[in-house]
Design a protein around this nucleic acid. Structure first.
Length: 206
DNA sequence: CACATGATCGCCT
DNA sequence: GGCGATCATGTGG
């Protein structure tokens, strides 16, 4: 059964032997999940073949207390409903009239926190192929039709790192200048040595 | 390299 | 009616 938009062929890989992240991984503190997702693999099965990339950049969004989050002040609309699901679900939103962004829901049901997947490294191809949340979704073929799906056991999954743990750097998040004090919170995590990271590689000066 | 801008539309006020 | 968890392209230094 074929479903959704085809992923880029350069993402073909073999997940044999890789271990899927478990529910307990996602239910932890959002900051811990965001940090530990750097190095994990974001993968999708399409027409019986696996496609995926190694995550190199993430951002944590902390629910009601976080002005940059879609669930700030307890907002609960149809769009953000997946953020209220149990940890380990996918939340995808559409922004700027043309881009989709993929998030991993964290914590437990009723706690609307999530981790934005900002960049990943393809098994082959140019380093910028999945650099930035919009490009990551476009290249993986992820759309809002995928919002709310379970990441465990389905056609979109996350596997634990299969190499040594990366050196993870921290900075403020990107594109949230409207968010008051929250704009400076150190909630962006990235592989300090990856060429696929988007945006600046240091903390904003103010 | 650092900005600046247009594209394009669903969502929220 | 305004604007955004972005990107590609353009200008200037």
């Amino acid at each position: 059964m074929t479903q959704g938009v085809a992923p880029d062929a350069r993402l073909r890989f073999d997940p044999a032997g890789m271990k899927e992240q478990r529910r307990s991984f996602y239910r932890r503190e959002t900051v811990a999940v965001a940090r530990d997702l750097v190095g994990s693999w974001f993968a999708r099965c399409y027409e019986g073949r696996w496609y995926g990339a190694r995550i190199v950049e993430t951002e944590a969004y902390l629910g009601a207390i976080d002005r940059a989050a879609h669930t700030w002040a307890g907002r609960r609309t149809r769009r953000v409903e997946p953020m209220y699901m149990d940890g380990g679900h996918l939340y995808v939103f559409f922004v700027y009239g043309m881009h989709s962004c993929a998030n991993v829901v964290t914590r437990s049901e009723g706690e609307p926190e999530a981790v934005l997947l900002r960049a990943a490294e393809a098994p082959s191809g140019p380093p910028k192929l999945l650099s930035g949340p919009g490009r990551l979704c476009a290249t993986m073929g992820i759309t809002v039709a995928d919002s709310g799906i379970d990441l465990l056991g389905g056609s979109i999954r996350i596997f634990a790192s299969r190499s040594a743990a990366p050196t993870v750097a921290v900075s403020a998040r990107i594109g949230v200048d409207y968010a008051g004090d929250a704009r400076n919170w150190p909630l962006r995590f990235y592989d300090a040595h990856s060429a696929a990271v988007s945006g600046p590689r240091r903390m904003r000066s103010r």
